[in-house]
Design a protein around this nucleic acid. Sequence first.
DNA 1: AATATTGGAGAGTCTCACTATCTAATCATG
DNA 2: CATGATTAGATAGTGAGACTCTCCAATATT
Lengths: 206, 206
Amino acid sequence: MRISALADAAGLPLATVKYYLREGLLHPGVATSATQATYDTSHLRRLRLIRALTGAVGLSVQQARTILALVDDPGDDLYATLGRAVSALPPTVAEASADDPDPYPRARAALEALGQVYDPGFAAVAQLESALAASEAAGMPISDERLLAYGRRLRDIAAFDLERMPREPHAAVEYTVLGTALYEPVILALRRLAHQDVAARRDLGG
Amino acid sequence: MRISALADAAGLPLATVKYYLREGLLHPGVATSATQATYDTSHLRRLRLIRALTGAVGLSVQQARTILALVDDPGDDLYATLGRAVSALPPTVAEASADDPDPYPRARAALEALGQVYDPGFAAVAQLESALAASEAAGMPISDERLLAYGRRLRDIAAFDLERMPREPHAAVEYTVLGTALYEPVILALRRLAHQDVAARRDLGG
DNA sequence: AATATTGGAGAGTCTCACTATCTAATCATG
DNA sequence: CATGATTAGATAGTGAGACTCTCCAATATT
């Protein structure tokens, strides 16, 4: 398959495919001459993944590149790889100053209330802190009760996710990293729909 | 309070505050002369809300303006208002062509499996469709089992949210619209942290 | 032989979210 | 009350990001 056929198959403008090649999101085809290369289904699959990440998930090209690089070339430590993936995901959050003894007080309190480990090195802790701070600043702080309600259900979801993790290391990384990113929009959409559904039922009931 | 004091209090550059005024995100102060106006704590609160929406929640200025307009001036129909808010939230999704008999097949099947109402006019349905399609295109389709697992927990979360809704209509709209947007980053961060926690426990246990 | 396509590089475009500059009027202060 | 600082409001400029276009020489295809 030549590049224009690839672009057609993916439903993308040729110029965009060339752009992704240039940016290193898409691996080059096999060169057959100075002005020709062939592409296969791996390129097509990759393009679909790129569009899923930059589209529905809402990543920038830079963020998508980071995620793709982790999937392509995971280290031997699933933990560290997941950590790197999470810190590439939005929201991007400023790094805490090294000398702050308690950089994420809200997140620390929240995790203690939930009985979960608090590791300030994990990017999601900073993300939680900024999300809690934003809610508070906007005048809608999150109560402990709400935190517990949310935390318990999300823990169930996370447990479900991990139960399905493939055993083979490379597949496990791919599943974990992509599953974290790709399923987030599903989760948000389901919550929004559940609001509607629960409200509808409540009204009908009385 | 004058505009520079307001900017200082909010921790924002003066030029940015002026920009929000121009864009209609921030209501004008009370003019005391041709070149002077005074601002109060309502302006400060609004600035904090704007930054929460454009920062942690990740909305564009245009999206934030839509959300803020809904909170400021809700219709008498909470349903319709929530619907408008949801369609202002990312991901932005293309409208289905009017003559398509089944524009959201994946979302329809999903909601049927969950036993929830399927209303193709609700923006979150289109968002769910695009999230499911993206997962599928990326090679990680969502099984019914997973959908049920997620759906049940998110329904619990939604039920919790609605139980806490204030009675007074204006407050209810504010709570619902802002709660939908502001708590989403919290939910994503908690899931990411739960992955880490569950994985850690699993490793310790076996 | 004539026409089309390609890889690769560079430049152009469009949107966004600010950020800066300017002007005339008004304030604050010594 | 003179003088420097601020202000509202308008216009213009900036830098990043994600494409999109144009070129060119070298093949491919017909």
